Amino acid sequence: MKYPEPFDLGALRTYSLHDRPSKVGLGDFARPLSAGMRVADLLAALPRQLAAEDLRAAAAAVAAAVRGGRPVLLAMGAHVIKVGLNPVLIDLMHRGILSGIALNGAGIVHDAEIAMAGRTSEDVAAVLGEGQFGAARETGEFLNEAVRRAAAEGKGLGEGVGEALAAAGFPHLDQSLLASAWRLGVPVTVHVAVGTDIIHIHPGADGAAIGRASHLDFRRFATLVAGLEGGVLLHVGSAVLLPEVFLKALTLVRNVGHRVERFTTVNMDFIRHYRPLTNVVQRPTLQGGRGIHLTGHHEIMVPLLAAAVLEALEAGDAA
């Protein structure tokens, strides 16, 4: 076998490094950190690159929406509750930063258990073998009754469960996202896929009531989306359900004539999923908005973003 001759490198045409456009320069570098820095100082010290720029942009978009009286909607999976972020979100509602919250069905389960017992999230692997997963009596009875009552009274799931929690006198209502939202007048919508939540295996589950109340919440969520021009949608921790709900609500309101084009979407999760990237970050913002993706653990990224927004608002008030 005859090997080819080595390629002649001497003919390579070169140019000066100083004349070449480059993506990174010293002006993009991070700055040294110091103890006692404010969040705003920390963000300013981060490199002017990639996710650091996105984090700054996300905080600025939320702050601008709040200052301009535009909505900031939060669509979130139940994992956000399970990692202990209710106090942060409740504080954002108290401050008037969150205009509305959309949950999947598991959100009401974990939120109600926090209110009732101060704890949630069972060890599935330990109990699934005996068929005990999801069989907590109090959870099933309370929530299925709240769902039936909401449907009978023409209320959505979020409103009905929030009202039922607020009236129940449970010991940890101050930590309940839905009870707090109901008391503050912040709309919560709940979007259920039947069979995905533990309360659906209980004898009190009423499919007609679940569907009626959840479909009403979809229509209410669409009303919130119809006013999203100039606002922000924060999407945290739902891989499939809520991206699909948002996309359908968005096409519905555009179909009937609402202009929802220039707004910001921020997807936050600890891994990159197809549907949030496509149906939250990319497709909805093609008409002139901006989509941002931040990868990181909820228990770190959500408080960090919240702190950045609070300091941005404080700086704007002081200016």
Rank of each mutant, 00 (worst) to 15 (best):
K23H: 10
G27L: 03
D28N: 08
M37A: 14
P47W: 00
A51N: 04
D54P: 04
R56E: 10
A57Y: 02
A59S: 13
A63I: 01
R70I: 01
V72P: 12
L89D: 07
L92F: 13
L98H: 08
H110Q: 04
A112W: 03
E113F: 02
E122Q: 14
A125E: 15
V127N: 07
F133D: 06
F133T: 01
G134K: 06
G140M: 02
G140R: 11
E141M: 03
F142G: 01
R148M: 03
R149G: 10
G154Y: 12
K155Q: 15
G160C: 02
L165F: 07
A168G: 05
Q175K: 14
A179R: 07
I198A: 13
D206N: 14
A209I: 05
V225E: 03
A226E: 12
A226D: 14
V232T: 04
L241P: 03
L241F: 01
L250W: 03
G257M: 02
N267C: 14
D269A: 07
I271E: 14
H273T: 08
Y274G: 06
N279P: 07
Q282E: 13
Q282L: 15
Q282M: 07
R283I: 12
P284N: 09
T285E: 06
Q287E: 15
G289T: 03
R290N: 05
T295V: 15
H297E: 13
A306E: 04
L310F: 14
